[in-house]
Nucleic acid binder design. Structure first.
Lengths: 189, 189
DNA sequence: CGTCTATTTGAATGTACTCAAAAGCGGTGG
DNA sequence: CCACCGCTTTTGAGTACATTCAAATAGACG
């Protein structure tokens, strides 16, 4: 049950048996239905989520009411509005489920407590933030210099198999194009 | 001489006199000429820079040799390839001067040492990273959903006065458009 | 002053969008 | 089980945004 999340932590830090048990006992588990909203904009992001099964999306809703997906979180991804969570301030982004999803999560205070017991985790989340930072930097360059078709191919590489699982309009929103145009792109090949 | 950088640190952490002196004595100062490259891609980013006067840019050069500016760093900005610096691994981005520039900088080991003397700085750089993370997330949404003209107006708001100081082709590269099209945009208003 | 690069302008083209309509698909209730 | 409703996806036609190529002009720097 904890295999995926422990494997994920092991990518950046080495935990001994005792530390693993501490992490396990701090984690909460929940399952949510497709389309359930976990975080609404303006709300404080109280939890950091790890997707064990299923898929989430993070998105922003603009003044015209249009939604723009900033990232997908399938299995083994972490989901959090980092600014909102770290400062316990109102969130800019929303988080919702694209499929029925099984999640581990830690509240802000649970994580603070866990940091005291397993200080290595500070390192883990620092690296996680830096990797995210880096990923987003590159996506800006990609968004500004590549055509929609090139971005679509990058998406397929970055999220293998996800294309088959989620609605095209979600992918179009992530790519910054209309679902109509994505349909035409796919027809081409 | 240290006023700007101390003010900048004060945005997120409160340092007493002794701590300020420790920071000051760790900092190195240098001036570089316009167009000087501080960091080439593939090189390890050995320093974190604070711009005291002048302006830097961070950019990526693609396979076709085209440069894409990811950010500008005028006075009071920090410049670093964060992935390269934190892991002392090869950099993806380059950093170069757009004007004659006066810089404070800290090497990786100098910063490590300084963290031991002034632990509050860990908090400062954590917040800096988070803010950058957040800024870039929003820029992706902006890049994918706004027109070139809207992005141009956002740029002018975000970097007041910078437009007068740097070449249009640098701004065009940041906006993800051709200098030719930027010229037409400006003519319109 | 001359050279080199950056910017402007015009014309033609390509990329991506809107509007509109039709077809497909999934869930719900009779 | 099927008919219907609502939502997503496809397709066509016309349009707007942004690019390329080329040539002229303006600026920067030695």
């Amino acid at each position: 049950m904890f295999e995926f999340i422990l494997e994920n932590l092991a990518l950046h830090v080495t935990l001994d048996e005792a530390e693993q048990r501490l992490v396990e006992s701090a984690l909460q588990l929940t399952t949510i239905k497709k389309n359930k909203v976990l975080l609404s904009p303006g709300e404080i992001c109280r939890n950091i989520y790890f997707v064990n099964k299923g898929c989430l999306r993070m998105y922003h809703t603009d003044k015209q009411g249009a939604e723009h997906n900033i990232s997908f979180c399938p299995e083994n991804w972490w989901a959090v509005d980092i600014a909102s969570f770290s400062n316990q301030s109102p969130s800019f982004y929303a988080i919702a489920a694209l499929e029925d999803t099984e999640l581990f999560y830690l509240s802000y205070s649970a994580l603070e407590k866990l940091y005291l017991q397993v200080p290595k985790l500070e390192r883990f989340f620092r690296i996680l933030t830096q990797n995210g930072f880096n990923l987003y930097q590159r996506r800006i360059t990609s968004a500004l210099s590549k055509t929609a078709e090139e971005r679509y191919l990058v998406f397929r590489k970055q999220y293998p198999g996800l294309e088959q699982r989620i609605a095209q309009k979600q992918i179009a929103s992530y790519l910054g194009i209309t679902p109509i145009f994505l349909s035409r792109l796919r027809k081409k090949r």
